Deep mutational scan, measured.
Amino acid sequence: MASQGTKRSYEQMETDGERQNATEIRASVGKMIDGIGRFYIQMCTELKLSDYEGRLIQNSLTIERMVLSAFDERRNKYLEEHPSAGKDPKKTGGPIYKRVDRKWMRELVLYDKEEIRRIWRQANNGDDATAGLTHMMIWHSNLNDTTYQRTRALVRTGMDPRMCSLMQGSTLPRRSGAAGAAVKGVGTMVMELIRMIKRGINDRNFWRGENGRKTRSAYERMCNILKGKFQTAAQRAMMDQVRESRNPGNAEIEDLIFLARSALILRGSVAHKSCLPACVYGPAVASGYDFEKEGYSLVGIDPFKLLQNSQVYSLIRPNENPAHKSQLVWMACNSAAFEDLRVLSFIRGTKVSPRGKLSTRGVQIASNENMDAMESSTLELRSRYWAIRTRSGGNTNQQRASAGQISVQPAFSVQRNLPFDKPTIMAAFTGNTEGRTSDMRAEIIRMMEGAKPEEMSFQGRGVFELSDERAANPIVPSFDMSNEGSYFFGDNAEEYDN
Rank of each mutant, 00 (worst) to 15 (best):
N309L: 00
S438N: 15
R162F: 08
S84C: 00
M159T: 12
I225M: 15
S376V: 15
I475H: 07
A332R: 02
N309Q: 03
G300Y: 11
N321E: 03
I347C: 12
M426P: 01
A234C: 02
S335A: 00
G462W: 10
V155C: 14
K422D: 02
S9W: 10
S165I: 08
Q409G: 00
E18C: 13
I347R: 09
L418G: 08
P83L: 08
S287L: 10
F304Y: 12
G93N: 06
D468Y: 06
K229C: 11
S438E: 09
L264E: 06
T188N: 12
M191A: 12
E81F: 00
W207M: 07
E114P: 08
S170I: 08
K198T: 14
F39N: 04
I57G: 00
A2N: 10
K305G: 13
M137R: 12
L381E: 10
P248A: 01
C164K: 02
A286I: 09
E210R: 08
E18S: 03
Q409W: 15
K293C: 09
H324D: 02
V100D: 02
T23Y: 01
G158M: 07
A428Q: 00
D255Y: 08
I301N: 01
T437Y: 13
F458S: 08
R8A: 11
E107D: 01
T92C: 03
M191S: 01
P354M: 10
M426E: 01
N125A: 02
E244G: 09
E244A: 01
T15P: 01
E64K: 04
W120I: 11
E73D: 08
D468V: 15
M331K: 14
W120V: 04
Q308D: 04
K91G: 07
M238I: 02
W386G: 13
D255Q: 11
T171L: 06
S367V: 03
D497N: 06
A218S: 04
M105Y: 00
V352T: 08
G86E: 04
T146M: 12
D439P: 06
F420D: 02
S353G: 09
D112N: 03
Q168G: 02
V363M: 08
R384A: 04
E434C: 00
R361P: 14
G450I: 01
G35M: 10
K113I: 04
V100C: 05
R361D: 10
H324N: 02
R204E: 12
V155H: 04
S287R: 02
P303V: 02
M167L: 12
A284C: 14
N21H: 05
S438P: 09
E375Q: 01
S407Q: 15
D203P: 13
S383V: 13
N370G: 05
F206N: 07
N397P: 07
N202H: 00
K227I: 04
Q235E: 05
S310V: 00
R174G: 05
F71V: 05
A123W: 05
A323V: 13
S326M: 11
I201S: 00
I197R: 13
Y289C: 08
Y10W: 15
T350L: 00
S359R: 05
E11S: 03
M13G: 00
A451L: 06
M105I: 06
D372V: 01
R213N: 10
S413I: 07
A284D: 08
Q122T: 01
N319D: 08
S287Q: 05
M32T: 13
S335W: 06
S335T: 09
R75I: 03
T62H: 02
E114I: 01
R261M: 12
S262G: 02
I57A: 05
W104R: 05
A260Y: 10
N370E: 02
I33W: 10
K90C: 05
R152A: 11
H272Y: 09
E449M: 10
E294Q: 15
G490N: 11
S60F: 02
F230L: 08
T350E: 09
R246Y: 00
D101A: 00
S245A: 01
